[in-house]
Design a protein around this nucleic acid. Sequence first.
DNA 1: TAAACTTAGTCAAGTTGGTTGACTACTCGT
DNA 2: ACGAGTAGTCAACCAACTTGACTAAGTTTA
Lengths: 151, 151
Amino acid sequence: MSGELPALLAVTFRAVMDHVHTRLAAEGFGDVRPAHGFVFQYLSFHPEATAVELGEHLGVTKQAAVQLVDELARRGYVERRPHPTDRRSRVVALTARGWACVERVTALWRETERRWAELIGEDRLGALREDLTALAADAAGGRPVPLRPLW
Amino acid sequence: MSGELPALLAVTFRAVMDHVHTRLAAEGFGDVRPAHGFVFQYLSFHPEATAVELGEHLGVTKQAAVQLVDELARRGYVERRPHPTDRRSRVVALTARGWACVERVTALWRETERRWAELIGEDRLGALREDLTALAADAAGGRPVPLRPLW
DNA sequence: TAAACTTAGTCAAGTTGGTTGACTACTCGT
DNA sequence: ACGAGTAGTCAACCAACTTGACTAAGTTTA
């Protein structure tokens, strides 16, 4: 059958993330919503981001971004500190708990990949990764793909 | 690098669907929200579904399902008809416009796959489809994966 | 170096897409 | 033929956003 690949991508991703969320919940990280994942993702690569930056990356208003940050701060995943030079601004950083959660997600993803390697073999998995990288790059057409709300 | 495959699935799917939505909008189907896609998907395989059935499949309450249907009916994509035997119930069916929209999506997906075949070759694409099918089945662990809100 | 402009964040109100709960009308099994 | 269950509706509520107006701090420019 042809034309079903996009759906297959979605279904696979969905199944993985359902599993990850179940595991996270069992390990005490049950209070993270899908949208939070994108905050974590961004903060782990931009450790001193501001709320406005975060909003731009997530494609939401600054007000919504601040609300997300407040919620995560209340739950102990992030911390707001005064900006070193700009007194209007405050930087958002992951706390130890925030980092721990990020670590768990990446560990679970690696675990998933190991499982997949067993299923289809290292070679096929390598080809899969390589091909998907090419397809994603082509589909994105040079634009950055924001990795936004999906899970 | 290892552990990035789940993200790669998401990014690829996201890029494809962004493209599809852009094209749909340009062809006069600009008034469909992501959630509608799942309604279409379900109705195209269950042509005489009820609102309650739809709600169960989408994982939302029947009230939310009815609201979705009303919205799509207002825009001419679906139609509500009396149920042939059960006078409490009404069946929801795609209109000509609804079917046209579904056709366009599947055509755009096929087009995407043809493009991908050019990029990585028929063989690799076949392997990709085969492997992803296996991984999805394994990740789902026997459970049906509902193909719910993602786009 | 002061006036004009821009930017980070806040406050408040409105919108949207859902929820739960209570209800009516109908169906079905015994 | 009646009691339990089901399809759909109405109404009230809630969460996650939005838009718009604002303050305070920073930046540019003449």
